[in-house]
């Protein structure tokens, strides 16, 4: 039984980017609670109930993971690979939100069955728009198996 708390897991190591993303979510009136992991290890611990998140109910999956690629310790692609390899998280919606638009990153992300790949614009107005559309699409419009 999946518990849907509507949480957004934001995996972002840059505190300013974190704050900007939260601001953008806020100005797009997305009220879902946001959990923040500051590197890949923390993100995996959160999702699998290990390490600092030992004991967390792993059935309580976030509605959406916003995943940066360049992360300390375990990078975003590795996190994505591990999520896809685990039955519990294989279908979890993951959106890469990154500065990179290197072809190799795009290719690898899609090979790992990412749900979406968004490049963060420098222009904050555009960034706001992107985050707003992201929220609308993934939190409101999109349907995911196993949820009512």
């Amino acid at each position: 039984m999946i518990v849907d708390s509507g949480i957004i897991l934001l995996v972002e190591d840059n505190p300013r980017d974190e704050e900007l993303t939260l601001l953008a979510l806020e100005s797009s009136r997305i009220a879902n609670p946001v959990a923040v992991a500051r590197d890949g290890v923390e993100a995996l611990d959160y999702l699998f109930g290990t390490g600092t998140y030992r004991g967390r109910d792993t059935a309580d999956l976030p509605r959406l993971v916003l995943l940066d690629l360049k992360l300390p310790r375990i990078d975003g692609l590795e996190v994505l690979a591990r999520l896809r390899a685990d039955a519990r998280t294989a279908l979890l919606p993951v959106v890469i939100l990154t500065s990179s638009d290197e072809e190799s990153d795009l290719l690898r992300s899609y090979q790992l069955h990412v749900n979406s790949y968004i490049r963060k614009p420098v222009d904050f107005v555009q960034f706001n728009e992107v985050v707003g559309q992201l929220g609308l699409y993934w939190l409101v419009l999109n349907r995911t198996p196993g949820r009512r």
Binding site: R16, L20, S99, E102, K120, V122, F124
Partner: peptide
């Protein structure tokens, strides 16, 4: 190098632009 430029050089710019915009708003 290009990868690093792509990732790391743009992030500070986003902060500069973003927080300036937040200030204005």
């Amino acid at each position: 190098f290009a990868y690093s430029v792509s990732h790391d050089l743009r992030a500070p710019l986003r902060s500069m632009d973003g927080f300036s915009q937040v200030l204005l708003e």
